[in-house]
Design a protein around this nucleic acid. Structure first.
Lengths: 334, 334
DNA sequence: TTGTACGCGTTATCAC
DNA sequence: GTGATAACGCGTACAA
């Protein structure tokens, strides 16, 4: 492994000065270098397989062409990790590198991690959270560009899923299939705390708005804030045992829907023939079910990509951007 | 936002030279600086809130205290993304930062991405793959430390799950519960291609070895290389329809087990009372089932952490390191 | 149109 | 024991 070629090497090879080399290779427009010199530089660079040293460049310019992606637990979260992928792709498109850090369940680490990223002179900070909620962040330097994905904090630009629209769309999908007696599993007062979730209230709001617009009330409800299969399972059984009459179930998320499927199957009810199921999130799980689950997708990958673009593109970012949650049509609604 | 303090500022504040400052702050041992001078330096640094500029340091030392984590799709893979977390934690412990990149389904991007990481002067390269298989990698500079996680390539150190042991342990768990008539779902010739999987053959080998040691053959088998719920579902139904007699099912992975559960429930068979189910991987899914699934866990987080440690700690890494797959005891075997 | 020389903040080599 | 000073590789003001 030979030493890497430097600008000086290229200059020598081309018989020109480093200034010329620098100007040419950085594609400076309003400096009149003869086309012939420029060509000589490019050839020399090519011959020597030259590529600029980003370290030296950063030292000189104060910019690193890198951004930090700081998250709570998205790497260990079933599906939220897709937001990393989105950010990675958008950053790479722009020639940026992503420094990753994760603070896990210990928010007190956040300060240390952010400080470490700032020391590394990242050009911007991207925060990503597992569940969209209000978060406390350490003080950040004024000028430093910052965007929150799936989270909100004081005056920082935030990217969130368009939950209200999704709530409406979910209900409307059931209505369009002719359902009028609809059950809902997963309402909870607890979830209204913005530090637990900043978006779930909107999901509820959308759901309720669409129901109201149709002049309907839910035929049955099973409350609960732990959106795990158990809730769907027990909730569905309870509603059936209460002799509630419904032709469709709307569940707070896919894991709840999963539990609902189990209960329905136990009772000999077929999805979607006897009972339709409509849900939110679109975890991988949704594709495992029989029939596969129709659900409103959390657009994590798009949110990650948008976050990186907002951070890196110079336009002033909006205070809050809502990313549409697409309806993923599978087989559980008919 | 004021300008950051530099070493020169600290030197001035302490009334000493930058040399002294550098020596003290880097904790050099065999240089005789008076304890009093050292103290003055530390105090001055504290007062000015000085922290060294990693960019300048890298320019000088040629090391960046950063490593690259290059993967195919681990960020969008249900559970493999835990290996990122492991690598992140281990890197942070050592003061290293992780530059992430992901090439997705396009291996031709690998070369570009690796080149970009090398340009950034990372101190080491960590490759992480979704499924443990033989991979082709671009040529890497001689000296550059490299470790593969969940993948194998020519002469590079690799970290893999200990599948053979896990295969044996899974069978032995069933034997310990008294099962003698065991069915197996998921054998396939196709999976023996090392470019598809380098470890599945070992999983088979462990399973077969344990069965042979017990003097047993499988009571029934359902073959298949697409390890999705569908295989478990159809496979189980077929075996039951063939009037096969078994008290336990060993499935190739959790998704297959999920399908098996569905089939068993349809036929009115209870897990684990009528049929025990034992599996591999430990996806989140395993905890959703009724009863929760007993399975051999793929230790992705540990593998990620070990990879980073091997990369960063100076010991010469072994050509291949097998990480134990722990038995996760839940409720599906009795 | 191109070249010279300096500075970015650090570490390392030598003097004193 | 400590202090000048020369790199590291790049960008750019200023000179030619």
């Amino acid at each position: 492994m030979k030493k890497r070629a430097t600008q000086a090497d290229v200059a020598r090879e081309a018989g020109l000065s480093v200034t010329t080399v620098s100007l040419v290779l950085n594609g400076r427009r309003n400096t009149r270098i003869s086309e012939e010199a420029a060509e000589r530089v490019r050839e020399a660079a090519e011959r020597l397989d030259y590529s600029p040293d980003p370290t030296a460049r950063s030292l000189r310019t104060g910019r690193t062409r890198s951004l930090a992606f700081v998250s709570d637990g998205v790497t260990v979260t079933r599906y939220a990790s897709a937001m990393i992928r989105g950010a990675l792709d958008a950053a790479e498109e722009r020639g940026y590198t992503v420094l990753m850090a994760e603070v896990g369940e210990r928010p007190e680490r956040l300060e240390k991690v952010v400080a470490s990223m700032l020391e590394r002179r990242v050009d911007g900070l991207l925060f990503g959270f597992m569940s969209a909620r209000k978060v406390g962040l350490p003080a950040l330097p004024r000028g430093k560009r910052t965007v929150l994905i799936n989270g909100v904090a004081d005056g920082l630009p935030a990217i969130l899923p368009a939950e209200q629209d999704a709530g409406e769309a979910a209900v409307n999908r059931l209505l369009a299939a002719g359902h009028r007696r609809i059950a809902f599993i997963g309402r909870s007062e607890r979830v209204l705390d913005p530090y637990l979730s900043a978006t779930i209230p909107q999901r509820y709001a959308g759901i309720d708005a669409a129901m109201a617009a149709a002049g309907l009330d839910f035929a049955a409800e099973a409350e609960g804030h732990e959106w795990e299969p158990e809730l769907g399972y027990r909730g569905t059984l309870r509603m059936l045992d209460d002799a509630a009459s419904f032709t469709a179930i709307l569940t707070a998320n896919d894991r709840v829907a999963f539990g609902a499927y189990q209960a329905l199957q136990e009772r000999g009810l077929r999805v979607p023939h006897d009972v339709a199921v409509m849900s939110f999130d679109d975890e991988q799980l949704a594709t495992y079910l029989h029939p596969p689950l129709t659900t409103m997708r959390l657009p994590y990958r798009e949110m990650g990509a948008l976050g990186a673009r907002m951070l890196l593109d110079e336009e002033a970012p909006a205070p809050a951007t809502l990313v549409p949650m697409p309806l993923v049509e599978r087989g559980s609604v008919a």
